[in-house]
Design a binder for these strands. Sequence first.
DNA 1: CGAGATTCATGTGAAGTATACCTTTAGGCTTAA
DNA 2: AAGCCTAAAGGTATACTTCACATGAATCTCGTA
Length: 401
Amino acid sequence: MDRLDKIFESFASSSLFKSKAVLQSQFIPETIEHRDEQIESIASILAPALRGERVSNLFVFGNTGTGKTLSVRHVGDRILERVKESGLDNLKCVYINCKLKKVADTEYRILAELIHELGGSVPATGLPTDQVYSRFIDLIDDKKQMVLIVLDEIDQAVKKISDDFIYSLTRLNSELKNAQISIVGISNNLTFMDGLDPRVRSSLGEEELVFPPYNALQLQAILKERADRAFKEGVLDEGVIAKCAAFAAREHGDARRALDLLRVAGELAERESSKRIGLQHIDLANQKIERDKMLDIIESEPKQFQLVLMAIMNLNDRIKYESIYTGDVYNMYHELCEKTKNDILTQRRVSDILVQFDMLGIVNTTVISKGRQGRTREIKLMIAPNIKEEAREILNKSLDM
DNA sequence: CGAGATTCATGTGAAGTATACCTTTAGGCTTAA
DNA sequence: AAGCCTAAAGGTATACTTCACATGAATCTCGTA
């Protein structure tokens, strides 16, 4: 991808970009603006690790795109640098994102990922969970060291597994003879702590830190800084940055989104070989981001899920004004399965699939009781009309219809 | 007419099944001394 | 005797099914004014 980008860029002499990477989400800037206070706090909490002391478990809150991950990683990297300089080898830092489905959505997988990151290996399945624990312990307890575990999106993990997992992690210290572990939890759910077991809450929340959302002005400053590095001079129209910032500020001050917006706007402008990036590109970019997100989800869904979605879409077209209910969806799904020679799942399962769609935001469901007509889910399709055609194409293709 | 009882079409939870992987273990075979 | 391969045994995750019970308001029933 990067190499292709380079090729294309070298051919497009009118490229607007100086360096696109600056706007990509993996990019880690040297300086993080408007987060000095938080970074210093993190640093002072984690600093004892340099002396080989156990540091307090830390818990970081804040909405998406407020720089939590970035700040924590930044501090972590700096500490590791420091460790390297002084030639010591008594500190390790592991970063895990619990939200990435492939990486971790069971206790097992998170542990496996931890072990993997620390250089060990463990099969993707098959081992009793407690054996994985003991492997983990063996791995880190072979010498005196500190292990810093950063769990990003920890709320996702707890939701899917249970807080026992974190409890056993915090308890692990008592089983370790040489090594010590500390946990840094990152969550974008402010109320996450309330639902936790009190024991977990107290051990995990030894230190807490809140990242407030960026306001529009701060977003502007951040965007400005990055835009200067990313774009050639004078390609941005007046007010483009302000508009990006405004869009993102509306979305809870999500800086990542703001940067995405800017990048996509740039790409769009470039594609129509415009010399400048205008306000209309931002609007287009906003639409495109939404669209891509939705289509990606749809495409990556398993077959049975796609069949159910197809059923919903068919119904949605047919009866424009009435609501769609579970029973209708199931019947339509049944038909589709027969037509496409797919296995037919039970109603129970389809019901669960609908719940999943609801969580993904593809569909909006409400459980209602229709009196004597029983109880059901009222289903509303949330796919924007202008994407429907494409969505249908994707479904047709992958369902072979 | 109004308070309860009924009822319908699913929601929901628990437990079970099938399948795909994975490790460990032990037996059998090969190999080298 | 040591080393290697293989198959069986024993575990987990995932996707799904089966069974049983829970829901909640429209509708029915029936006593009463």
